[in-house]
Design a binder for these strands. Structure first.
Length: 645
RNA sequence: GGCGAGAUAGCUCAGAUGGUUAGAGCGCAGGAUUCAUAAUCCUGAGGUCCCGGGUUCAAUUCCCGGUCUCGCUACCA
């Protein structure tokens, strides 16, 4: 493979409607940061791009709910997240945002270019329109009764109660969540990117030319390509986003997934006048770091957009990670089940590298992984403190004790010394080989093995005993131990930037380039080192227990029945009310409905008869636990069949 | 429902074009050691490789069927 002239690293743009958590870090930003730092220390030409994704419906919903403008929402989270990245040493060359002017221009121009080339098809479809608020309603803005489970709190895109994905037109008695009124169907025009047109080319490019992509990425792409691609809408009716730059397109903006990846381009433009070198020169190697939920957009939709435009390069690889769970449960922003980065730093000030280490060591590279506080503590105490911190401390303290902190000269080496030096020299290539293949867990392990080697070397050579009889021999031993320490500052640099900085200060050296790692002459005899402090502190059980307790409290809070009250339905007449026959009934039997997640079949004794009712409660109640309980029931509701019952 | 990925030691994960004793780190047990933040080093115990069938001389690996977890499912972002 030809060596690329430069690298362009992109990291998925975090959506600016919430703070960042450990899942973001482990899945995307730690790998991308390690990779970027690695390329930089190797002396490659590389830029790392990221920014806030600030458009789309959820942000407008959040703004409406909080009674502020969408701009205020994104301003808040942009600043918060930008700071979190800085605090954790995630070094982007630029952290931009999609609500700024340069992005609007870039995205608008991109659309115009495709529009002028005739790359879009226009389609007029019928969509729900809110007459009172005078706007089209995205599916998310519509609620109604689910046609499958009869839950009355289904959204236009999905029923939260039974999990079915829906079209807004499927809903029974739809209501606008903006005004509460009943929406009407109205025609609206949208632009579509005909992905089907690029299908043959995508098949060749991915399925034939990129067999080396990770199996999850390749498999997902293959599944889409095998099913056949369809034209995909690139615009929507909304007043928040990049306006569609076409006459007569008032009230329409670019669909956020058209808009967001262009954010990578606008951020690069904002960073450098040479942006076209990074985006259009075939000698540039582009890598997208993303989570698994983003695969199709980065592997199919965005490449199709770039291809349609014509002058851009395509990604060389898209190393998508799986998801990180937390204490055996899915991370969820809405359920507050997460470790938030800004909160972590309040509770563990100065311990950024510990989290970086723990998340990299158990990154969800091939399958979903679980983060536990216990593992976090163990990783810190047994690996960072005991192996790395301890070795560095031993080497420097011994030097301080025996040779007044000066690097001793190496005399004659014996066979064992040479063996150790040889392993040390090979270690950087092992780390590099893993990093080149985006295997970050393995790379970190190999880097740590260098510290393990150091501990073993000291244990085997026992300088604290030899010093009594043979000082010359100890000089050689400590020289070698210190050379290992110096190499550690190189191979660990991408992973633990904060700690490596400290270590360099104690060794009194500058940042060394990658290729020097493993050399036996990084520190010359007589070089003065500093007395070391603590590289890592021990984390006590109380500290992590407190974190677990915090999560348990969240869980309790979530389980408490403080359900948000649904919007009040339209008033009904007294006659309607009077016609409801509500009675108290006793549950005599309850069984789960097979092949459903949420449905439970109940047998009820109403006092007047015994009847069978299906309720969407199986996620929250145990069949055994609710037997004998009393419920109220409208006994004259029209009977319906659900799942054949 | 359809599709994709995963399931291997107590935990977190590697791995094998099908072939003798399936690996690592952590945890656990025993020993050595004291320079070091009781940190290190050595040794050891631990596995129905998710379940059921098939192909084969041989299956944890390939094929078929199933179970569970996660993701995608085309206007969710």
């Amino acid at each position: 493979m030809k060596k690329p002239a430069r690298h362009l690293i992109t990291s998925a743009l975090p959506y600016a409607n919430g703070p960042l958590h450990i899942g973001h870090l482990a899945g995307v930003y730690i790998p991308s940061d390690i990779y970027t730092r690695y390329l930089k220390i190797k002396g490659e030409d590389v830029i790392s791009i990221c920014g806030s994704d600030e458009h789309g419906v959820p942000i407008t919903l959040k703004a409406r709910k909080e009674g502020i403008t969408p701009q205020e929402v994104v301003d808040h989270y942009h600043e918060l997240n930008k700071k979190s990245f800085e605090d954790f040493g995630i070094e982007f060359d630029i952290y931009s945002r999609t609500s700024n002017k340069i992005h609007h221009e870039t995205a608008s121009d991109f659309f115009s270019t495709l529009y002028k080339k005739g790359e879009f098809i226009e389609k007029t479809t019928e969509q729900y329109y809110d007459n009172e608020a005078q706007c089209f309603l995205a599916d998310r803005y519509i609620s109604g009764t689910c046609p499958h489970c009869s839950s009355d709190s289904a959204y236009g895109d999905q029923c939260e109660s039974c999990g079915t994905s829906l079209n807004a037109t499927d809903l029974i008695s739809p209501r606008s969540m903006v005004s509460g009124t009943m929406p009407v169907m109205k025609e609206t025009k949208h632009w579509f990117l005909p992905l089907d047109k690029y299908e043959p080319w995508l098949k060749q490019w991915i399925l034939e030319d990129h067999k080396e992509w990770k199996t999850n990425v390749y498999g997902q792409c293959k599944s889409w390509l095998d099913q056949g691609l369809q034209p995909r809408a690139v615009s929507r009716d909304l007043d928040w986003g990049v306006p569609v730059p076409v006459e007569g397109a008032e009230g329409k903006v670019l669909y956020v997934w058209f808009d967001a990846p262009i954010g990578y381009i606008s951020a690069t433009r904002e960073l450098t006048d040479e942006w076209e070198l990074y985006w259009k020169d075939p000698d540039t190697r582009m890598i997208h770091f993303i989570g698994k939920d983003n695969i199709v957009f980065h592997c199919i939709v965005f490449p199709a957009m770039l291809k349609a435009e014509g002058s851009y390069i395509l990604p060389d690889n898209v190393p998508a990670n799986e998801f990180l769970n937390l204490e055996n449960d899915k991370i969820s922003t809405s359920r507050n089940w997460a470790v938030w980065l800004h909160e972590y730093l309040q509770d563990f000030p100065g311990d950024q590298d510990v989290l970086r280490y723990a998340l990299c060591a158990s990154a969800p590279e091939t399958k979903d992984n679980d983060f536990t506080w216990k593992e976090f503590r163990n990783r810190n105490n047994n690996e960072l403190v005991a192996i790395l911190g301890n070795f560095v401390n031993r080497a420097l303290i011994l030097t301080n004790k025996y040779f007044d902190s000066q690097v001793p000269a190496r005399a004659e080496t014996n066979e064992y010394d040479r063996e150790v030096l040889e392993i040390m020299a090979l270690q950087k290539d092992k780390v590099a080989a893993a990093l080149d293949n985006f295997r970050f867990r393995e790379a970190l392990k190999e880097a740590m093995n260098l510290a393990r080697l150091g501990n073993k070397y000291l244990a085997d050579t026992e300088p604290w005993i030899v010093i009594k009889t043979d000082e010359e021999r100890v000089r050689t031993i400590l020289n070698i131990a210190l050379q290992i320490t110096a190499s550690l500052t190189i191979v660990l640099d991408p992973f633990l930037p904060f700690s490596v900085r400290k270590l360099r200060e104690w060794l009194n050296i500058e940042t060394l380039p990658w290729d020097m790692a493993g050399r036996d002459d990084l520190l010359s005899a007589g070089h003065k080192t500093d007395r070391p402090g603590m590289l890592f502190r021990k984390i006590e059980e109380e500290e992590t227990d407190r974190q677990v307790k915090k999560l348990m409290e969240t869980k309790e809070k979530n389980e408490a029945p403080v359900k948000e009250s649904a919007p009040v339905k339209e008033n009904i007449s007294y006659d309607d009310f009077a016609s409801l026959d509500i009675r108290t009934a006793t549950i005599t039997a309850a069984v789960r409905v097979p092949k459903t997640k949420k449905l439970m079949q109940l047998t009820l004794d109403t006092g007047i008869d015994t009847r069978t009712v299906v309720a969407g409660i199986a996620e929250h109640f145990d069949p055994e636990a609710i037997q004998g309980k009393q419920v109220s029931l409208i006994v004259n509701l029209q009977p319906r069949k659900i799942k054949g019952i």
